[in-house]
Amino acid sequence: MRRRVALGLAVVTASGVLALAAPGSAQAAETSCAGRKVRTLSFSTGSVQVYKRNGWICAITLAKRPGVERYMMVSVQARGLRAVVDEGMYSRLAGPRKTHAGQRKVRVKGAVGGGSVSSGWIRF
Results as ranks from 00 to 15, higher is better:
Ala6Phe: 10
Ala10Phe: 13
Val11Thr: 14
Val12Gln: 01
Ala14Leu: 15
Ala14Met: 12
Val17Cys: 04
Ala22Ser: 08
Pro23Arg: 05
Pro23Cys: 04
Gly24Asp: 01
Gly24Arg: 10
Gln27His: 13
Ala29Leu: 07
Glu30Gln: 14
Arg36Met: 06
Lys37His: 02
Arg39His: 08
Ser42Arg: 13
Phe43Met: 04
Phe43Ser: 03
Ser44Lys: 14
Ser47Leu: 09
Ser47Glu: 15
Val48Trp: 00
Val48Cys: 02
Asn54His: 11
Ile57Val: 15
Cys58Pro: 04
Cys58Lys: 03
Thr61Ile: 04
Arg65Lys: 14
Gly67His: 09
Glu69Ile: 05
Glu69His: 08
Arg70Thr: 14
Met72Leu: 13
Met73Leu: 15
Val76Phe: 11
Arg79Phe: 09
Arg79Gly: 00
Gly80Pro: 09
Val84Ser: 12
Gly88Glu: 08
Ser91Tyr: 13
Leu93Ser: 13
Arg97Asp: 04
Thr99His: 06
Gln103Cys: 00
Arg104Phe: 06
Arg104Trp: 07
Arg107Ser: 06
Val108Leu: 05
Val112Arg: 02
Val112Trp: 02
Gly114Gln: 11
Ser116His: 15
Ser116Thr: 06
Ser116Pro: 00
Ser118Met: 02
Gly120Tyr: 05
Gly120Phe: 07
Gly120Ile: 05
Trp121Thr: 03
Ile122Val: 15
Arg123Phe: 09
Arg123Leu: 14
Phe124Ala: 02
